[in-house]
Design a protein around this nucleic acid. Sequence first.
DNA 1: ATGCATGAGTA
DNA 2: ACTCATGCATA
Length: 255
Amino acid sequence: MMSMNSKQPHFAMHPTLPEHKYPSLHSSSEAIRRACLPTPPLQSNLFASLDETLLARAEALAAVDIAVSQGKSHPFKPDATYHTMNSVPCTSTSTYVYKRQHIFRAFAERFKQRRIKLGVTQADVGSALANLKIPGVGSLSQSTICRFESLTLSHNNMIALKPILQAWLEEAEGAQREKMNKPELFNGGEKKRKRTSIAAPEKRSLEAYFAVQPRPSSEKIAAIAEKLDLKKNVVRVWFCNQRQKQKRMKFSATY
DNA sequence: ATGCATGAGTA
DNA sequence: ACTCATGCATA
């Protein structure tokens, strides 16, 4: 039996991304389905030739990027059908990633322009998302919307959020065009922790340690914490965050 | 816009 | 104990 699971006919382009982590990409919501389909032409001529087919193919290979970002070897074969913006055949993984980076940049820029045109803040967008009633999609913070627009999220995160934000954008523009009263698409909700601040000298020391050993052992962390007179947990978290940051910068700093 | 933090999922 | 997505507080 069940030689084939006859579940929902999926349009999901992201079989490599686990559903529990990216529910929206596996959602059967109409809004998301629409958002995953072809997009209106890009405003910037620079990106005019980048169509959604390429985006879909690029996104489908997210696993490659993950492997690359982790410094692992990967199965990606340079493919002549991928072209850079200068019509140069894609000959390497880095060229390919370069292209994909630009596709996201094009979308993020356009998203920001249109959001501002609607007169909506990043925080508003974040809280309005919950009102889209897309299964598995709740509200997001101003931070996350800001990071999306500035491309400072991980690749997987960009892939997951793009259809959601696109769905919101289309809803909001549609509502405005038809002068519909849908305040819930333009307004935010409400929102409290004490923030530790590491002084500059200590931070320099941490960076120096990080350069030598980005993954210090628990013992090493304890030693560093004592030397800098910081709590051990603060040091541990600092290293975690630093590793996350490095991973993102590896991509955005290369291009 | 970004630093430090939390929590879920993994290994 | 780590990674990853995400958020509060703050510069």
